[in-house]
């Protein structure tokens, strides 16, 4: 192995769509495999990707409760950005993924954590939507804002917004 400092990848995961989450984790795992440090910043709808699949989202106030009911999230519930077709689209994509032995999103998330990919959650979006830390899967390493993201992004060689 070379002695030069590790390269790094920073990803902003803004989207809560299944197809885009798959792309994000594909990149994260690829980069981690290449020996890069990887940090994924989940913000806005992207927080849905790292929500637990079980249980409800506890939040205060009518509007936030309604939002969290309609926007439940969780890796198993993400819609497709195209051809969602009331849930038939994601069902078909998951079937096709199984056909080619491609890991499901839950398995990609677990593999990313196994490869030490770091997860950050945006506290502004959490406050806006009324999402608490216990809504997330284990493995969220940091709760932060734009400065923490930018300080890592400026040091990284690859930075993408998904």
């Amino acid at each position: 192995m070379s002695e030069e400092p590790k390269k790094s990848l920073t990803l902003i995961v803004f989207s809560g769509d299944l197809d885009k989450a798959l792309a994000a984790f594909n990149l994260a795992i690829g980069a981690a495999s290449m020996g890069m440090n990887v940090r994924m910043f989940f913000t806005f709808w992207g927080l849905n990707v790292i929500k637990k699949n079980q249980g409800g989202i506890q939040s205060k106030g009518l509007m936030r409760r309604m939002l969290n009911r309609m926007n439940r999230g969780g890796s198993s519930r993400l819609p497709l950005s195209r051809f969602h077709m009331l849930g038939i689209g994601p069902w078909m994509i998951k079937r096709l993924m199984k056909d080619i032995k491609f890991p499901q999103l839950e398995e990609l998330i677990a593999l990313a954590k196994q490869m030490d990919v770091k997860f950050s959650a945006c506290t502004t979006s959490m406050g806006l939507m009324g999402i608490s830390k216990d809504a997330f899967i284990p493995g969220v390493d940091a709760y932060c804002g734009v400065a923490a993201y930018l300080s890592e992004a400026t040091e990284s060689q690859v930075n993408l917004f998904i």
Partner: peptide, 11 residues
């Protein structure tokens, strides 16, 4: 297996 699994498993 398809990308990124071969390089992930290699790593």
């Amino acid at each position: 297996l398809y990308c990124p699994m071969p390089i992930a498993q290699t790593a």
